Every structure is written in structure tokens, then in C-alpha cells.
Simulated scan of single mutants.
Amino acid sequence: MMRPSLNDLTAFVAVATHRSFRRAADELGTAPSTLSHAMRSLEDRLGVRLLNRTTRSVSPTEAGLELLSRLQVALTSLDEALDATTAFRGNVAGRVRINAPRVAAAVLVRDILPRVAERFPDVTVDLVVEGRLIDIVSGGFDAGVRLIDSIPRDMIAVPLPVPMGFFCVASPAYLDRAGEPTTPDDLRHHRCIGHRMPSGRLYRWEFERAGQELTIDVNGPVVLDDEELMVDAAAQGLGVAYVASWAAEATLAEGRLRTVLSAWMHEPERVAVYYPGHRAVPPPLRAFLDVIKDVLVQSTSRTGGTALQTSQGQ
């Protein structure tokens, strides 16, 4: 049997991952009909059906799923091997496009980008701030940032060094005036700063304690769609805000805010940079990821913790 070409195997991974000839063709810069013909040739060469096709959908067969899982690992290893030659080609240069929610983008700017600029001065990080979840491949991004649990399984995830939790916060002046809530139900009698999600709906505040979960609708004097503005509004005494820990840490450290209902907040969650596992990793993205991994290792060694796996499903 003649060994399939790397191009055919890469095309198969794209089709099987997207489950669409059109989307795979858009990514690879070819025509869907060309991909369809290539997949039939690949199946003939291997002597096994890899894809189930209908007029509306494409899905991997059992053999296709097995091949897909092995090829994703192999192609990632190949990319890493090729990237290892970067040091011998001179400085890494180019642009890496990252999609991230605002609060995560602020952490990248504070903790990661200065190190990227120092180690890789010819790499430009094009950071696009967006609250809604998008398809980073069709959006033209090299990578995105999400909570690890929400990252698609066909992506590779590199955790950021610090997990993100959520705080209920209010200014000392507001708490002196209105009293401190001791249970989430007490919030019904407080002025709360609403959070409008990118979808347009109002966020329902979520709490958990000893296995008991509560979801609360709140009311108050203002509704905002930006966490930093919510922190500022709380610091100005407008009421209680429910915000990401990353957004509130500096204001809490200054004493302009206090946390409330700490015993009812969920455990912090890991956030990761993620990128497609079936395509070559450009050197600028690899440089960006290497910095994140180095910061993660340094953070882990300081805390004595254990780094998370950097690949979904491992």
C-alpha cells in the first residue's frame, strides 16, 4: 500500500474535525469538491471507509475516529519538531491573532505580553477583545481564550497561570449603610449592579455551598456589560457587584471594595489559551504559548502545585 501524503492526511483531519467539506475547504484554501475527491482517494488507498456522507452532513466512521485521534497527536508532534528548528533560523517574527474576553485580555496584557515583548521583540500580538464565544478558525484567529471546560474537544489548551474565580463585592461605605448580606437570598433586599451578557440577557448570579446551588435574579440602579465598569460602580457605592476575581483584585487590594458571601462562591476555574489541534502552529503563536508555559511552570514551582495537562482529553 502506498503511504498517503501528508497533505491528504492533514485534509482528512480538517474534514473529520469540522464535519464539513465546506468549512474544511475554507480553512485549507481549496474547493469542497477537491477535498471530497481527495477523501475518496484516501479511502481507496487505505481500503476502509473513513467518512459517512449524506447530502447534509459528514461524520467520521469508527475507523475514521481512530485515525483522527492518532493523527491529531502525530501532527502536533510534527509541528513541535519543526518548531524546534526555529532557534536556528534566527529571531521569531510575525503576527499572532488572539481572541479573548476583556477580563482575560487584561491579564494577558499585565502578565504575559511584557514577557513576549522581551523575549520575542519581532512578534506582534493582535489581541481582539470580544465577550461572545466564537469559532476562532472561521474568525481568522490563531488562538482564543476560554474557561477550560468550554473549550471544544478538538482544540489544544494551554492553561493560564492563575485560575479565575468570582467575587461578590461592595464598597465599605455601601456596606456600612445597607448592611452586609449573609446569604444569597439577602441580595433581594440590596441594590445590585446588573450584568448584561453578550447575548443580551441579564446574568443570573450563581452560588454554591455544601452541594447546594442557588441562582438569584437581582435588581439595582444600573446594568453594565463590562466587568471593569461593574467594579468601578461598586467602588462608587452603587451597590453589590458579582465580578470575576481578575477584574476586582486591584480595587480590593486598595481597600475600596470588600468581598461578601465568600462562603457561597464557586471554586476558581482554570482558563486557557486554545488553538486548533489539526493545523500547523505558526512560530509567533508557538512563541506566545512558550511564554505562557514558562510562566505556568514558574507559578507552579512557587506554589508547589501541579501543572494541568495542556491537551484536551488527556
Score class of each variant (00 low, 15 high):
16 A>H: 13
70 R>E: 04
60 P>K: 08
77 S>V: 05
156 I>F: 04
124 T>E: 15
121 P>W: 08
107 V>I: 12
180 E>T: 15
202 L>M: 03
53 R>Q: 04
45 R>I: 04
205 W>C: 12
311 S>G: 04
290 D>V: 00
30 T>R: 09
304 G>L: 14
41 S>R: 15
89 R>M: 03
39 M>D: 06
106 A>G: 01
68 L>H: 05
45 R>E: 08
105 A>C: 10
116 V>Y: 12
149 D>P: 03
138 S>R: 15
1 M>E: 06
287 A>I: 15
254 E>I: 05
154 D>N: 15
124 T>V: 13
124 T>G: 00
194 G>F: 10
28 L>M: 14
88 F>R: 15
25 A>Q: 04
127 L>P: 02
32 P>S: 02
157 A>Y: 07
260 V>S: 06
104 A>H: 09
142 D>M: 07
17 T>C: 10
178 A>K: 14
107 V>F: 12
312 Q>M: 15
72 Q>I: 00
59 S>F: 04
118 E>I: 07
196 R>H: 00
153 R>H: 14
62 E>H: 05
287 A>W: 13
175 L>E: 02
128 V>W: 04
260 V>I: 14
74 A>V: 06
213 E>P: 10
97 R>F: 13
90 G>Y: 11
207 F>I: 01
19 R>Y: 04
295 V>P: 06
288 F>W: 03
106 A>S: 06
137 V>G: 00
280 A>S: 02
308 L>N: 14
54 T>R: 10
268 P>S: 02
246 W>V: 01
11 A>D: 02
114 P>Q: 03
100 A>W: 07
201 R>F: 01
245 S>K: 11
197 M>Y: 10
59 S>Y: 01
264 W>D: 10
114 P>Y: 07
269 E>C: 07
130 E>H: 14
77 S>G: 08
28 L>A: 04
139 G>K: 10
218 V>H: 03
89 R>W: 09
245 S>T: 15
104 A>T: 03
240 V>E: 05
187 L>I: 00
215 T>N: 08
68 L>E: 02
309 Q>I: 02
291 V>K: 09
47 G>W: 07
134 I>Q: 14
243 V>N: 13
235 A>S: 13
283 P>Q: 05
174 Y>G: 08
277 G>F: 06
245 S>Y: 05
65 L>Q: 05
39 M>T: 08
11 A>R: 07
3 R>G: 04
300 T>E: 11
219 N>V: 11
218 V>A: 09
188 R>P: 00
146 R>T: 05
302 R>A: 01
19 R>S: 13
168 C>M: 12
82 L>W: 07
25 A>E: 08
103 V>N: 12
112 I>V: 15
264 W>I: 08
144 G>C: 00
234 A>W: 02
87 A>F: 11
210 A>M: 10
98 I>W: 00
305 G>C: 06
261 L>M: 12
116 V>C: 01
27 E>A: 09
251 T>I: 06
113 L>G: 07
314 Q>I: 03
147 L>C: 06
236 Q>K: 15
272 A>V: 03
33 S>Y: 04
158 V>E: 02
98 I>L: 14
216 I>W: 09
111 D>K: 05
56 R>K: 11
11 A>F: 01
79 D>V: 00
177 R>L: 14
230 M>A: 12
56 R>P: 10
256 R>Q: 15
15 V>C: 12
171 S>D: 08
64 G>Q: 08
286 R>Q: 13
262 S>P: 06
58 V>K: 09
138 S>E: 15
296 L>H: 10
301 S>D: 05
98 I>M: 03
284 P>V: 09
78 L>V: 01
